[in-house]
């Protein structure tokens, strides 16, 4: 089921000679889906919006060197994933440890998560999200791309620049690790 198809429709055709219009059109079509993707990764709405803004600005700056506009969505999605990785790395560096070690925070709960967002997520979902965010970056990313965006192996491989075999093995490892974190029966 492609539940997020409405969030991430195919790229609209756009002339390369009109970068501002093309990037803006792409943003209108995909910003919601990409912000939601970043929120899932980060649990932090302001940070998610900034990551997406930066990704589209990066696309805009490099528009002239883009070999074809059809790759724009793939490009910007990879940028969002990398941007999320950077935010998480910086958080971890600031806290000196994994998510659960942050001063004033509990495991997997990002410091910027709003009270509104927290209230909207059930305890069951919070537990799963916390466990996902405790996984290593690559495992977390394949799970979100696979089970949130419903991307297939080839699409995940392209977004993360890894082989399909690595996607498969990383997914397997991530599911196993997540099962242990959640106390799933083995």
């Amino acid at each position: 089921m492609k539940a997020n198809a409405t969030d991430l429709p195919p790229s609209p055709p756009g002339p390369v000679s009109a970068p501002a219009e093309a990037v803006t059109a792409l943003y209108r079509a995909h910003a919601l889906g990409l912000i939601r993707l970043a929120v899932v990764m980060l649990g932090d709405r302001p940070a998610a919006e900034d990551v997406v803004q930066e990704a589209f600005c990066g696309l805009y700056r490099r528009w002239h060197s883009l070999s074809d506009s059809g790759k724009a969505l793939s490009y910007v999605r990879s940028s969002v994933i990398n941007g999320c990785r950077t935010v998480l790395r910086r958080r971890r560096r600031l806290s000196g440890g994994p998510a659960g070690d942050r001063p004033g925070g509990t495991a997997g709960e990002p410091p910027g998560e709003s009270a509104e967002s927290a209230a909207l997520i059930s305890e069951e979902h919070r537990q799963v999200l916390t466990a996902i965010r405790r996984l290593p970056a690559r495992q977390r990313e394949v799970l979100v791309l696979r089970f949130y965006l419903d991307l297939d192996e080839a699409e995940i491989a392209a977004s993360m620049r890894i082989s399909r075999g690595t996607v498969k093995s990383t997914t397997s490892r991530a599911l196993a690790a997540l099962g242990r974190l959640l106390g799933e029966p083995s």
């Binding site: 919601l32 939601r36 899932v40 909207l120 997520i121 059930s122 799963v128 979100v144 949130y148 599911l175």
Partner: peptide, 28 residues
């Protein structure tokens, strides 16, 4: 089961962003 839990949890987190709340794009 665990796949269903991932889908449900990530969907719930995503849904905290309402469709009409996307900020405008600020290009340099």
């Amino acid at each position: 089961t665990i796949e269903e839990r991932i889908r449900a949890a990530t969907r719930a987190a995503a849904d905290t962003v309402p469709p009409d709340s996307v900020p405008p794009l600020e290009l340099p």
